[in-house]
């Protein structure tokens, strides 16, 4: 009759105690696990990375112009218009333009005129950004969208 009870390895009191302990531990652990997600932002408070450049005829072939405040270089060539990010791919400093291309003030990465990595610790070349035109024909750069190097927007 009491076969099942006899095979029980622990006393009822111990079982209830342990069950209570583990329930508490799992509840607290689960709650903590939920809370440690808090520091990971689910929404990033950033301004839009898209900005207007202006009319295409402001950038005749041959111009290259740094857009103030955006850290973007706009290059216009016969084959079209391209935008290069001036943020160094190494550790995020702003590269400056020189005769040979670009150089980074922080750790000496050097890039050629097309943003290809020439020397230094940067893991890759400068980012090329998407250029497009709005309905009114004005150019738009989307600094959040990277395109393949050598992509020119034909007006």
């Amino acid at each position: 009759m009491s076969g099942r009870l006899e095979s029980e390895p622990i006393a009822r009191r111990d079982f209830l105690g342990l069950a209570g302990l583990w329930t508490t531990a799992i509840a607290i652990g689960g709650a903590l696990l939920g809370m440690v997600r808090l520091p990971k932002p689910s929404v990033l408070p950033e301004a839009s990375r898209r900005f207007r450049l202006g009319r295409p005829d402001e950038f005749p072939p041959g111009t290259s112009k740094v857009i103030a405040g955006q850290n973007v270089l706009v290059v216009s060539k016969p084959q079209g218009i391209a935008a290069l990010s001036l943020v160094c791919t190494h550790l995020g400093c702003i590269v400056s333009k020189n005769e040979a291309g670009f150089s980074c003030p922080c750790h000496g990465s050097a890039f050629d005129g097309d943003g290809r990595i020439v020397a230094g610790p940067a893991p890759r070349g400068l980012r090329w950004l998407q250029v497009s035109a709005a309905v009114d024909g004005r150019l738009i750069v989307n600094a959040g969208n990277e395109v393949d190097p050598g992509t020119y927007y034909r007006v």
């Binding site: 990971k40 932002p41 408070p45």
Partner: peptide, 16 residues
């Protein structure tokens, strides 16, 4: 990207 966002609360150094 995860550890950078955890540190900065954003992708760039700012108020967060």
């Amino acid at each position: 990207g995860f550890s950078k966002q955890l540190l900065l609360g954003a992708n760039e150094v700012g108020q967060d």
